[in-house]
C-alpha cells in the first residue's frame, strides 16, 4: 500500500507539489489525470527518489514504511516500480545485461541468490513473448534508438520481470499505437492482483477502458483536487480541466 500524505516538494527551487495526499491500496488501480505541468511526473520522481527533488513537508509510506530517506534502489527493492514517461537511453549497456543486473540486484537486496542464467533467459523469453518485444531489442543497447512505442513496451517488460508491489505508470500509453496499447494494457492486467497496487498516470480515457481503474484522481497545480470512480475520467474527457485549474490556484 502506498500512502502519500501532505507532500510538498521543490524542483529547481520552485514548489511543484503543494500538499498532495493520495492512497493506493493493495489490489487497487488508481488513475491520475491532470493538465500538463500539474506535477504528475514530479510526483512519480519524488516517490521513486530522484535526486534534486526536495521534499519539504509530508510523508510517503510504502507498506507502512517511510521511504523518503531511502535511495532509489532500496525503494525498488521494497517493491516500488516506475515506468518512465521518457525512458532513458543507456548507450553501451546491452538490454539483456541490464535486465539481469536489475533482477539480481533486487534479489540480492532481499537476500536471495542470483538467478542462474538459463532460468533468467526463460523468464525473459516468456515475458518478452507476451509483450511482443522483439528478440533483437534485447541484444541492443538499452532504449537506444528504440521507437517511442518500443521504449514503453520495454518499461512494461521490466515491470513484469521485477514483479513490484506498487507500480507507477507515467503516461505509458502515450506514443503507443492501438495494438500496442492493448498489449501493454494486457500486460498490466495480467499483473493485477490483490497484493499489487497501480498508479496509472494518463491523459486519455482510452487507456482506462483497457485498464479499468478503481479510482480516478484529478491532479492540478501539485494537488489532488478531485477523486471519484471511473466515470470521472469520462467527465474529464468531455469537459476538460477548466474548472479545476481555477480551483487549485
Amino acid at each position: 500500500m502506498l500512502e502519500i500524505k501532505n507532500l510538498h516538494a521543490n524542483v529547481g527551487g520552485k514548489e511543484i507539489l503543494k500538499g498532495l495526499t493520495l492512497t493506493v491500496k493493495d489490489g487497487e488501480v488508481a488513475a491520475i489525470m491532470g493538465p500538463n505541468g500539474s506535477g504528475k511526473s514530479t510526483l512519480s520522481y519524488v516517490v521513486a527518489g530522484r535526486e534534486g527533488y526536495e521534499v519539504t513537508q509530508g510523508e510517503v509510506l510504502l507498506n507502512g514504511e517511510s521511504i523518503l530517506d531511502m535511495p532509489p534502489d532500496e525503494r525498488a527493492a521494497k517493491g516500488l516500480f516506475l515506468a518512465f514517461q521518457y525512458p532513458v537511453e543507456i548507450p553501451g549497456v546491452n538490454t539483456m545485461t541490464f535486465l539481469k543486473a536489475a533482477m539480481n540486484a533486487q534479489r540480492k537486496h532481499r537476500g536471495e541468490k542470483e538467478l542462474p542464467t538459463p532460468e533468467f533467459m526463460k523468464i525473459v523469453r516468456e515475458a518478452q513473448g507476451k509483450l511482443g518485444v522483439a528478440q533483437d531489442m534485447l541484444r541492443r543497447a538499452l532504449n537506444v534508438g528504440f521507437s517511442g512505442g518500443e521504449k514503453k513496451r520495454m518499461e512494461v517488460l521490466q515491470m513484469s520481470l521485477l514483479d513490484p508491489k506498487l507500480a507507477i505508470l507515467d503516461e505509458t500509453d502515450s506514443g503507443l499505437d492501438i495494438d500496442a496499447l492493448r498489449v501493454v494494457a494486457d500486460g498490466v492486467n495480467a499483473l493485477r492482483g490483490t497484493d499489487r497496487g497501480f498508479l496509472v498516470i494518463t491523459h486519455y480515457q482510452r487507456l482506462l477502458e483497457y485498464i479499468k481503474p478503481d479510482t480516478v484522481h484529478v491532479m492540478a497545480s501539485g494537488r489532488i483536487v478531485k477523486t471519484g470512480g471511473p466515470e470521472l475520467a469520462h467527465e474529464l474527457e468531455a469537459r476538460g480541466y477548466k474548472e479545476f485549474i481555477g480551483q487549485a490556484a
Binding site: A48, G49, R50, E51, G52, P71, P72, D73, R75, A76, A77, F81, L82, F84, P87, V88, I90, P91, G92, V93, T97, F98, A101, A102, M103, A105, Q106, H109, A141, Q158, L162
Partner: peptide, 26 residues
C-alpha cells in the same frame, strides 16, 4: 549522466553498481 544513474537505480541497482555499469559501457 544523473538521468542514466537514476534510471538504473530505480530498477534496484545500487549506485556503485550503476556507476560501474555506465563506466564500463563508456
Amino acid at each position: 549522466d544523473p538521468a542514466q544513474l537514476f534510471y538504473a537505480m530505480s530498477r534496484g541497482i545500487p549506485r556503485a553498481d550503476a556507476e560501474t555499469l555506465l563506466l564500463e559501457a563508456f
